[in-house]
Design a protein around this nucleic acid. Structure first.
Ligand SMILES: NC(=O)c1ccc[n+]([C@@H]2O[C@H](COP(=O)([O-])OP(=O)(O)OC[C@H]3O[C@@H](n4cnc5c(N)ncnc54)[C@H](O)[C@@H]3O)[C@@H](O)[C@H]2O)c1
Ligand SMILES: NC(=O)c1ccc[n+]([C@@H]2O[C@H](COP(=O)([O-])OP(=O)(O)OC[C@H]3O[C@@H](n4cnc5c(N)ncnc54)[C@H](O)[C@@H]3O)[C@@H](O)[C@H]2O)c1
Lengths: 223, 223
DNA sequence: TATATATCGATATTTTAGTATCGAAAAATA
DNA sequence: TATTTTTCGATACTAAAATATCGATATATA
C-alpha cells in the first residue's frame, strides 16, 4: 500500500474503534480526577479505575497524541484537552432529534450529552399533541419544519427515535437536509448514501451479550 | 487445555462476542422474512439486508449449530429457534429495574424487550412521588422492597437507571438479592463480585464512534 | 437419469486488537 | 551529584476477528 512502509510504522495514525469507544470512559475519569485537584495520573491508576490493563491504557492514550512523563504519568489537563479534541467533544456538534416518544424524550432530557459536546438544537414529531411545545426545555417542531430549521441551524447529526415503520423515510428527510451522521435508536436496518455515516445503537446486542455472559459464568468451573 | 485438541478443532464451541452482538439483527430479519411466508434464505440475502459480508453471516450462523443446504440456504424456522436458544431469548429472563426516571421509564415502556425474552417483573425508585404506582403497566416499588420481591420473583438481571451517585449502592443491593447480571445504563464504573456479570451500556461510546466516523468520511479522498 | 449451478462450509490467509518484555528517561532520594 | 525507582513507550508476540479460496453437495433443470 505504502511505498515506504517503515516510515508510517511508528506514528499510529489510524485510531481504532475499540480505542474510540473507551475514550469517553477515560474522559469521565479524568474530569473527576481533575475536580479532585489532581494533576498527573499513571496508566496503572487509570487501568485500576476502569478495569483495564495498563498497557491498553497506554496504547489508547498514545493515539490521542499524548505522551506521559516517566515516574509521573500523564498530565490530566493535557489528556482531557486532547481526548476532547479527538472525539470532537467540543460543544459544536449540532443535532436534530426525530421522534419525541418514550426514548426520544429521555434523550432530550439527558444532561450528559452537553458534557460530550452534543447540542440537540431541535426536536421533531408527527404527533399534533407533541409539537409546538417544549420537552426538557427543547423545542419540538412538526416534522415538515425540518428543512426550514436545517437551513438555519445546519445540523450535523440526526438522532432517530421514531418507530421502525417510519425510520427510513425520516432518515431520508434528514439526509436531504445535509445531515452527515445518523444515530439510529430504532432497530430498523437503514439505507443511507455513501457519504453519510450510520451508527446503530442496538440495545438488544448488549442484552444478548449480558445473557450469554451470565450463562457462561454459571457454567464456568473456576475462573 | 484439552488432551485431544484435534477433536474440538472444527466444532466452533466458543461463541464470539461480535457474533453475539449480531444475533439480534439476524433474528429481527428472520422473523420479518417468516412473516412474509418465506421458508429459506441464503447468506447472500441476509448479508445484503444487514450490510454484512456473506462469509461473516455463514460463520456467525455456524455458531448457532445450524447448517444450510446447498442451493437453498438456511431454514428460516430452524434459524429462529436456534438463535433464540443461543441468546436465551426464551421469555425467561426475569429482571428488576432501578431508577424510574427519564431513561428508566422509557425502558419500562419498550415493547421490544418482551420480544427478546426479557421480562421486567418490577421497578424500584426512591422518590415517594413515583412509588406505589405503575409506569407503562409495570409496578414501581420503594427501593427497600427489593429484597422482599427478589425472594419471591428470583430476578436474574438488574437494569440500572439511577444517577451515578447512587449506582454503586443500588448494585450492591441487587447483588445481595442474588441477581447475576447487571445492565448498567449509568455511566458509573461499578465494582461487582467475580460471579456477577456487568454489562455497561455507554451511549457516549456510540456517539464518539459516530463523531469520529463523520470526520474520517469527510476527510477521506475517495472510498 | 445426467448435468449444471447455486450455495454451503472447511481451510488458509490477512487484518485488527490485545498482551508481554524490557530498555530509556525523568523525577525522587541519598 | 550519583543512585534508585517508577513509569513510559518501542518492539515483539499472541489472540481474535474478518476475509479469501475453493471443493463438496444437494437441488433444479435438461
Ligand atoms: N423505548 C425504549 O426503551 C427503546 C429502546 C430501544 C429502542 N427503541 C426504539 O426507539 C424508537 C422509539 O421508541 P419509543 O419507545 O420512544 O416509541 P414511542 O412510540 O414512545 O415514540 C415514537 C415517537 O415517534 C413519533 N413519530 C412517529 N412517526 C414519526 C415520523 N414519521 N416523524 C416524526 N416522529 C414520528 C411518534 O409520534 C412518537 O412520539 C423505536 O424504533 C424503538 O424500537 C426504544
Ligand atoms: N436519560 C438518558 O437519555 C440517559 C442516557 C444515558 C445514560 N443515562 C444515565 O441513566 C441514569 C438515569 O438517567 P435519567 O435521565 O433517567 O435520570 P433521572 O433523574 O430522570 O432518573 C433517575 C431516577 O432514579 C431515582 N433514584 C435516585 N436514587 C435512587 C436510588 N438510590 N434507588 C432507586 N432509585 C433512585 C430517581 O428518583 C429518579 O427517578 C443516569 O445515571 C444517567 O447518566 C441516561
Amino acid at each position: 500500500m505504502d511505498s515506504f512502509p517503515e516510515i508510517a510504522k511508528n506514528s499510529e495514525t489510524i485510531i481504532r474503534m475499540p480505542t474510540v469507544r473507551r475514550l469517553p470512559r477515560y474522559l469521565r475519569l479524568l474530569i473527576e480526577l481533575k475536580s479532585e485537584g489532581k494533576d498527573f495520573v499513571s496508566s496503572e491508576k487509570i487501568a485500576q479505575a476502569l478495569d483495564l490493563k495498563p498497557i491498553v491504557v497506554r496504547k489508547d492514550l498514545a493515539f490521542t497524541g499524548n505522551c506521559g512523563k516517566p515516574r509521573l504519568g500523564y498530565s490530566i489537563e493535557h489528556l482531557i484537552i486532547s481526548i476532547e479534541n479527538v472525539i470532537n467533544f467540543r460543544g459544536k456538534d449540532t443535532a436534530f432529534l426525530a421522534g419525541v416518544g418514550n426514548l426520544g424524550s429521555a434523550l432530550l432530557g439527558y444532561k450528559g450529552f452537553e458534557k460530550y459536546g452534543l447540542n440537540i438544537a431541535a426536536a421533531f414529531d408527527l404527533d399534533k399533541e407533541k409539537v409546538n411545545k417544549t420537552v426538557h426545555n427543547k423545542d419540538v417542531y412538526p416534522l415538515e419544519m425540518l428543512p426550514v430549521l436545517a437551513a438555519r441551524l445546519h445540523p450535523y447529526i440526526g438522532i432517530l427515535c421514531v418507530p421502525e415503520e417510519s425510520a427510513q423515510e425520516v432518515v431520508e428527510k434528514m439526509v436531504s437536509c445535509g445531515i452527515k451522521g445518523i444515530w439510529n435508536f430504532s432497530n430498523k436496518e437503514l439505507k443511507v448514501p455513501a457519504d453519510v455515516v450510520l451508527q446503530n445503537e442496538d440495545l438488544a446486542a448488549g442484552l444478548a451479550v449480558l445473557s450469554i455472559s451470565i450463562d457462561k459464568k454459571s457454567k464456568a468451573p473456576v475462573q
